[in-house]
Amino acid sequence: MTEAPKPSRPVFACRFVGPDDEDPRNSILFWEPKTIQEWVASLNRCNEIVESHLDDLERSIAPIKRL
């Protein structure tokens, strides 16, 4: 018996999280913020993800030289 596909979970705006993401810290990104507090929390989390992604990219451009 094949497993039923998971229902699609549209991400509100953060393009750096896919519908299969299961990190509980990202749950806020799966609905449209209804209050300013939710907007702040959603934006903060997305910014954290992007910042970490940019850190990775920077390391791939200029890897830290090890002695």
Binding site: A13, R15, F16, W39, L43, C46
Partner: peptide, 12 residues
């Protein structure tokens, strides 16, 4: 990243 983050930023 630049394209997707621009899109993200505009949506917010």
């Amino acid at each position: 990243t630049l394209r997707d983050y621009t899109d993200t930023h505009f949506a917010y």
